[in-house]
């Protein structure tokens, strides 16, 4: 995460943070390193290395075994014989989030589950990607007016690709995954969210301007999980 982005990120109100993060500007630098920042411009060898790493991340993904609602059935179908998403190298389900790269959010998220899903997402190691499957992860879908329904996955975690449909056919999901792989291979993907434990670690770092700015701007409350459905789209 580059230093220019962070202040904006923190300034945003809680409800719209994830949504704005998705809209962020241009090609992101999710995998950027300090080395590159030190060098300034990207030397040839690093560009090639970047390309290689993007290809690697785009070609192979372990996905989290994660079922929520109706869409998870079509997700199962996408994994199984006829559709077989493993052809694209994205069909190894891992039960533990620690070993997954890709989380497909297949269904309606409700108030009780949203914090749990955030936890699961936080437990995944970087770089991680999210595919929102179905209308419910876009807006709450047919249940949008429900008192208990979170209006879209992006209220909770940043989503890279949305696959619309209720539920999307397995082909559509595979298309979504292929698109995500394409984006990752081209070096475009949404920014990383800062995790609470990373913020804590700033305390040990050599304090520089960025850290000072950050420390001033981070407000404990903004780390709270909350969802406000009055304000939702």
């Amino acid at each position: 995460m580059s230093s220019e982005r962070i202040p904006d990120d923190v300034e945003r109100t809680v409800q719209t943070k994830t949504r704005d993060a998705r809209l962020g500007s241009g090609v992101d630098d999710r995998f950027n390193s300090r080395l590159r920042q030190a060098v300034g411009s990207s030397p040839f060898i690093l560009t090639k290395f970047d390309k290689f790493m993007n290809w690697v991340r785009g070609s192979s993904m372990f996905m989290l075994q994660f079922g929520i609602a109706c869409c998870s059935l079509e997700m199962i179908h996408a994994l199984m014989i006829k559709h077989d998403v493993d052809r694209f190298g994205a069909g190894v389900p891992r039960a533990s989030p620690r070993q997954a790269d890709l989380i497909i959010v297949p269904g309606t998220i409700v108030s009780k589950f949203a914090p749990r899903m955030k936890r699961v997402y936080d437990q995944m190691p970087e770089p991680k990607f999210v595919v929102g499957m179905g209308s419910c992860t876009i807006s709450g879908g047919p249940f949008q007016e429900g008192y208990n329904v979170v209006k879209g996955a992006e209220e909770v975690i940043p989503v890279d690709i949305h696959v619309p449909g209720c539920p999307p056919r397995p082909e559509a999901l595979i298309y979504g995954i292929a698109k995500l792989q394409e984006r990752v291979a081209n070096g475009e993907s949404s920014p990383v969210v800062v995790k609470p434990y990373e913020l804590e670690q700033f305390g040990d770092l050599h304090r520089d301007e960025v850290i000072d700015q950050l420390a001033d701007r981070i407000d404990e409350d903004s780390l709270a999980m909350r969802y406000n459905w009055g304000d939702s789209p």
């Binding site: 192979s60 077989d84 493993d86 052809r87 190298g89």
Partner: peptide, 10 residues
């Protein structure tokens, strides 16, 4: 064993 194809694109 399961009549599937598995990785063939990369």
């Amino acid at each position: 064993f399961t009549d599937a194809i598995a990785v063939n694109r990369v």
